[in-house]
Design a protein around this nucleic acid. Structure first.
Lengths: 193, 193
DNA sequence: TATCGCTTGTACCTATCGGTACAATCTTTT
DNA sequence: AAAAGATTGTACCGATAGGTACAAGCGATA
């Protein structure tokens, strides 16, 4: 059971690590920050993540990706009711990003040179999201070319909504933008479905 | 003339500083980085910017804001031909952000805690952009409520396009998204104008 | 309860951080 | 050309960065 316990404790530190990286970015999050955020001393941190900050961020990305795969990507990929799946996606995403007050770690990593080490994971995350959403729209009888366009627009639009809502300090902006995106996708399904 | 020369040299360092901040972010850009980027030693840097990194970023923001005011905001605010102004805006923005390969310093600052010191400027930048674009659409006879929505969607959409294009390493994504936004605004003007 | 191995806090390391001091240079003015 | 001022590189500062070493502490097995 000891090997399981290591896993458990390592995993239980991930939410706090993710929150610290979210707030301060990869460069801005110091070991002192991470230690305080998790309640773990440096010793424990390096025990669980021998690779240091980079391994911590890697684990956080893995964890986030797992959450999205489960809560967002899979439902879209194995969709039965496209309209319901899309509505669910926007609801989950709005809750997850706290209407834009909570930043997207993955998106932020792509923006500066500090995130280059994680480029593949960042790319994979967005690529899978768009492809899952495209698939869902196609199941809703939306023509493939339009489906791909709408999916790209939606995923990109959510990221933009986060940037704008943070900049303006306005959750309402996020909600308006996301609602418009949702309507746009649902309209396409209604039109072709 | 000496006071002018100070201004000139300080100003001439701004593009290099902006590029360094763009690439590494505020925290990630060290004084060594900034020194190398500008070709100025620490002494000169602190001679021109006694307030250190923070004053440098402040000056960079001022500079960026000035560029946008001149190239983007003013044409929208004093618009005669709304359709042409909007087309011009998207062209200029696409060139400025190098189809999304070049990050928006202002948007990035809003994303993590390091940028809190600049929150007012960040907010002002986006607020003015949205309000200028709203005005332009209204001149194009688009109803005010819809104009505000479309403007918010466009500005937010551009930011999202940058995030996505960087993450995917795909300029094509940026161009598709921006073209769709442009069409959406032009359509509204055609419909109501 | 003695032992074993995982876990943890503390002390410590070097490199580099942002920033300062200042003497040596240029420029400019006269 | 000489004085005055602006500009610059270099040396240096304390603080803190990420990371390592390691002895004490801990819970499980026997």
């Amino acid at each position: 059971m000891s090997s399981k316990r290591v896993l458990t404790d390592r995993a239980s530190a991930l939410p706090a690590l993710a929150e610290a990286f979210r707030e301060h970015g990869f460069e801005g999050a110091t070991l002192a920050t991470l230690s305080k955020a998790t309640g773990l001393g440096k010793g424990s941190l390096y025990n669980f993540f021998p690779g240091g900050k980079e391994e911590m961020m890697d684990a956080v990305l893995e964890n986030i990706d797992g959450w999205f795969a489960n809560a967002i990507f899979s439902p879209l990929e194995q969709v039965l009711d496209p309209a319901a799946a899309i509505t669910g996606m926007f609801d989950d995403v709005t809750a997850y990003f706290r209407s834009g007050q909570r930043v997207c770690v993955v998106g932020c990593l792509g923006l500066n040179s500090a995130g280059e080490a994680f480029a593949a994971k960042v790319k994979g995350y967005f690529a899978r999201w768009i492809s899952a959403l495209t698939h869902c729209l196609e199941v809703g009888k939306v023509p493939p070319a339009l489906a791909a366009d709408l999916a790209e627009e939606a995923v990109s639009g959510i990221q933009g909504a986060i940037v704008l809502a943070r900049a303006l300090g306005a959750e309402a902006s996020f909600q308006r933008i996301v609602q418009r995106l949702r309507s746009s996708l649902l309209d396409a399904i209604v039109r072709y479905g």
